[in-house]
Simulated assay, not measured.
Amino acid sequence: METTSKKKHICVLATGGTIASRPTPNGLMPALSGEDILAMVPDLRARCDIDCVQLLQLDSTNLQPEHWIRMARAVAERRTQYDAFVVTHGTDTMAYSAAALYYMLENIDRPVVFTGSQLPAGVPGTDAEQNLLTAFHAALGGRAGVYIAFGGRVMFGNDARKLCTMQLTAFGNINRPLAGCFAGGRLTWLAEPPVSTGAFRLHDQLDTRVGVLKIVPGLPPKMLEAFVNAGFRAVILEGYGLGGIPDQESPMNFLPAFQYAKDHGCCLVCTTQCTYDGVDMDSYEMGVRAQQLGVEPGGTLTTEALLPKLMIELAEEV
Rank of each mutant, 00 (worst) to 15 (best):
M1S: 09
C11E: 04
V12T: 08
I19Y: 09
D36S: 14
D43R: 14
D59P: 02
I69W: 05
V75D: 00
Q81N: 11
F85R: 00
Y96S: 04
Y103I: 04
Y103P: 03
M104N: 01
F114L: 04
V123F: 15
T126I: 13
E129K: 15
L132H: 14
L132E: 09
H137L: 12
G142E: 09
V146K: 02
G152V: 10
V154R: 01
A160W: 01
R161M: 01
L168T: 13
A170H: 02
N173V: 08
P177D: 11
F182V: 07
T188P: 06
P193Y: 04
G198N: 05
F200L: 02
F200R: 03
V210I: 13
K214H: 00
I215M: 10
P221M: 01
K222N: 12
A226I: 09
N229V: 06
F232R: 03
E238L: 13
E238K: 11
G241Y: 00
L242P: 00
E249P: 04
P251G: 13
N253M: 11
K262A: 15
C266G: 11
C270N: 11
T271G: 08
V279Y: 04
G294Y: 04
E296Y: 02
P297A: 07
G298R: 05
T302A: 02
E313P: 01
